[in-house]
């Protein structure tokens, strides 16, 4: 075989090798780093507290971030396209309240839930309209939506929690039941994460999300309808928040009009710790979930270590700041 014949094949092999290193290098470095930190924390905690590494505690931890994790999925995709959504906490609550109120009005809980999710998606569509047609930015639009939707929740419930003890057991099972000792909530969360992580890495439609977030102008000059992409991602983020709201309702058997206030900050923090950039163009779902897991392990540790709740918030904020600073430093070193 002459060298000339070898070249294309070699080039392809080399190229393939380089891609595996380069394309996912940063992301996988970050994800590996997070896993190491989480494992180190878990090991340290297992010495500090005998209760930490018990199935009960791990399950409680997983439960605590599973439903929020569904919202994180939507937020991460929205961050990649260059947007942000401050209204997710309100939308989670809105979905609960709408579904709950419809159930109390006599609708069967499954249909009521679908309506709740659809209503959440509609909120996303309205935000998407303001972002893409009117031309406002995501931050301001979703800030307004956060307040407006919270107001809607208070109006619908007249400010008092809806008691939903009468929900049928088959529906409550979503939030409270288990399959072989694994709660359905965790299973649903794992399925959502697996599906969207796969789609985000492989689906052509989601590749357009990366193009749009990386350089909107260049995406337009490649024939990508960036406004459509931004619109649908905004809708998806709200719809996933609505889905999470329905699961919360099944879990708690109640719909409180103040539920989810401040949730958006936790969710954005998790996505950013996991590698999503506020400038758009980068981020992975797996990373964001690891970010969520880290915050959850820290919270759980602080509780087990009997640290005052007043300190917990502050410590979580410091972790966010540290994670973002380290990332910034690593990136700057590279360029």
């Amino acid at each position: 075989m002459s060298p000339r014949e070898q070249t294309p094949m070699q080039a392809e092999l080399n190229a393939g090798g380089a891609r595996r290193i380069d394309f996912t290098r940063l992301a996988s470095m970050r994800e590996a780093g997070l896993i190491v930190i989480i494992l180190a924390l878990c090991v340290a905690m297992s010495f500090a507290s005998p209760h930490f590494l018990t199935w009960g505690n791990l399950r409680a931890m997983m439960m605590s971030f599973s439903i929020e994790g569904i919202v994180v999925v939507g937020m991460t995709i929205l961050l990649i396209v260059g947007g942000i959504d401050l209204s997710v906490g309100s939308v989670v609550c809105f979905s609960m309240v709408i579904s709950g109120a419809l159930f109390l009005a006599g609708l069967d809980p499954w249909t009521a839930s679908l309506v709740g999710i659809a209503a959440s998606a509609l909120i996303g569509a309205i935000m998407g309209f303001f972002v893409t047609v009117v031309g406002l930015n995501h931050f301001i639009t979703s800030l307004a939506a956060m307040v407006i939707v919270r107001g809607l929740c208070l109006i619908i419930t007249k400010g008092t929690p809806l008691s939903l003890f009468s929900l049928p057991p088959s529906f409550k099972a979503i939030g409270q039941g288990s399959f072989h000792n694994i709660p359905y909530v965790i299973l649903i969360f794992l399925v959502v994460v697996a599906v969207f992580d796969f789609l985000l890495r492989r689906a052509t439609a989601f590749r357009k999300v990366f193009y749009t977030g990386s350089n909107q102008k260049a995406a337009q000059f490649s024939g990508i309808k960036t406004n459509q992409v931004k619109f649908w991602v905004t809708v998806l983020c709200s719809a996933l928040a609505g889905f999470a709201g329905v699961i919360y309702m099944a879990r708690f058997g109640a719909a409180t009009p103040t539920f989810g206030a401040g949730m958006e900050l936790n969710i954005i923090a998790a996505a950013v710790i996991g590698g999503a950039s506020l400038n758009g163009g980068s981020g992975t779902i797996f990373g964001a979930i690891l970010g969520m897991a880290l915050l959850s392990v820290v919270t759980s540790s602080l509780i087990l270590l009997d640290v005052s709740v007043y300190w917990q918030e502050m410590i979580k904020g410091c972790i966010l700041l540290a994670a973002v600073s380290i990332d910034h430093f690593l990136h700057r070193k590279k360029s």
Partner: peptide, 19 residues
């Protein structure tokens, strides 16, 4: 500004026009 996606891989840039 509008020709390439600077932070994305070469292969991903090239395929952008017709996915």
């Amino acid at each position: 500004g509008s020709g390439v996606f600077l932070d994305m891989p070469i292969s991903v840039n090239i395929s952008a026009l017709d996915l």
